[in-house]
Each structure stands twice: as C-alpha cells, then as structure tokens.
C-alpha cells in the first residue's frame, strides 16, 4: 500500500469516535478493519476501547485514534468524553433493526449540539450481509446521510464488504477537512520519513490473542461437529 515516500508527504493525526446502539457491530467493524478478522462472539464493549492505526492515503500518513464506545444506555453519559475533540465520527446502525437507525439519529443530534468544531460524519449501515432481513432501506439512509452532510456506506463486518472503503473515504474526508478548515483541530505536520512505520505497526499484539482464540474456537467447533452435541 505505501507508495514511494515523496518529500512533501504530510502526517495527519485524527481522533475518531464510533457511536451507535448496542449490538449494531461497532467493535466488529473496528476489529475487522484493524485485525482483518471477524469474531462471532465479540463481548459487549464495556466503557470504551482505544485503537490506533496508520495508513497512507493521498500522500498523507494518517494516524487514526479510534474510540470504540459501548452502546449500552448506561454508558451514554460517558460519551461526551470520547466525542469531545473528535475529528470524525462513525455512526453505526444495524440494517435489520429500524430502532438502531432512529437511535443513530439521536447521536447525530447530540453531536450537533455538543460539538462546535467541524467534524467528518460517516453513517454506516452494518450487517448488510443480512439482506433478507433488511428493515432500513438504503435510499432512506442515503437521504438522511446527505441531509446531514455525512458519508454513507453499507458495510458488513462479517464479509468485509465496504469496511475498507469506509475507512479510506473517512481518511480522505479528514484530509480535505484539514485543508478547508484550518481551525478544525486537525494537526498536519510534515511527514518525517525517518520515522517510517508499517501500516498497522505490524499486527496489533493485542489482537493476536483474539485471533488465536478464534482459531481455537473454530477448532473446537469442528471437533464438536465431529463428536456431535455433548452436554
């Protein structure tokens, strides 16, 4: 992915917050993107998890610092801490549950009233592999996204559909935001080629554990299939 480093490459650091109702797949999306894996039983996030990763887009070295928040209502009061000073927000809903779409809108309203710096918004309709259970039509979501000036993608953390594109487009939007609105809180610096690093800082060590676990689970499942159901 990393093109030949040109001398005028810039480094950009951005804070991103992922918001949405519980169970829509916020963590799955982030883990899918960062770890290139999908885990069937991701535990509900408690509080919030913090991921960082880097990518090279459009002659920029973009470092995204992602707050993956918990969707449960009781954590709602903590949310301002995460979206404060955020430069971008992923607003995730589940295309098979209309209520999550409505809930996502309340997040948009909250962001509008609580933040004053310009922000890149990106609406994600997740679980688009479950087409036959669809309750939220693409058109409706697209219209809504357009009305608030947000990007819109339908994604599936399971099949990886649209996930790469969403992150890529978000980064591009962040780059153009940093150019068009100099006081938006985004910091761009000249990229120091000496501090060159891998796109994903190799593989996030913390995710290795998860990947191992998934492997183990899969092996177990296979075994169970062989043995038949026990207990």
């Amino acid at each position: 992915m990393a093109g030949p480093p040109t001398p005028r490459m810039k480094a950009l650091e951005a804070k991103v917050v992922v918001l949405g109702k519980e169970g829509v797949g916020k963590t799955s999306l982030v883990v899918r993107y960062v770890g290139k894996i999908f885990s069937k039983n991701v535990s509900p996030t408690v509080g919030a998890s913090f991921f960082t990763f880097k990518m090279t887009v459009d002659n920029h070295r973009v470092k995204l610092m992602v707050w993956d928040t918990a969707g449960q209502e009781r954590f709602r009061s903590m949310a301002p801490m995460y979206y404060r000073k955020a430069n971008a927000a992923f607003l995730v809903y589940d295309i098979t549950q209309y209520s999550t779409f409505e809930n996502m809108k309340t997040w948009v309203d909250e962001l509008k009233t609580a933040t004053d710096t310009p922000m890149v918004l990106c609406v994600l309709g997740n679980k688009c592999d479950l087409k036959d259970q669809r309750k939220v039509q693409s058109d409706e979501a697209l219209m809504y996204a357009a009305s608030i000036g947000a990007l819109f993608f339908e994604t599936s953390a399971l099949t990886n559909e649209g996930v790469q594109e969403a992150f890529l487009r978000l980064s591009l939007a962040l780059i153009s935001l940093s150019k068009s609105a100099p006081n938006c809180g985004l910091i761009t610096k000249d990229y120091d080629a000496r501090r060159k690093s891998e796109d994903f800082l190799s593989f996030p060590p913390s995710l290795l554990l998860l990947r191992e676990q998934i492997k183990e689970e899969e092996e177990k499942e296979e075994e169970e299939k062989k043995v038949g159901r026990c207990c």
Binding site: V31, G35, S43, P44, V46, G47, A48, S49, F75, L210
Partner: peptide
C-alpha cells in the same frame, strides 16, 4: 470477574468506569 467474563479487553486498551 470482569476480565474473566469479557474478551473485549484483549482486543484493545479499554477505559471503563
């Protein structure tokens, strides 16, 4: 119990009340 019950902490640094 918190650590035992949830695998979500293994994926990333977490910040919880």
């Amino acid at each position: 119990n918190l650590l035992n019950a949830s695998t979500s902490f293994q994926a990333a640094d977490s910040w919880i009340p």
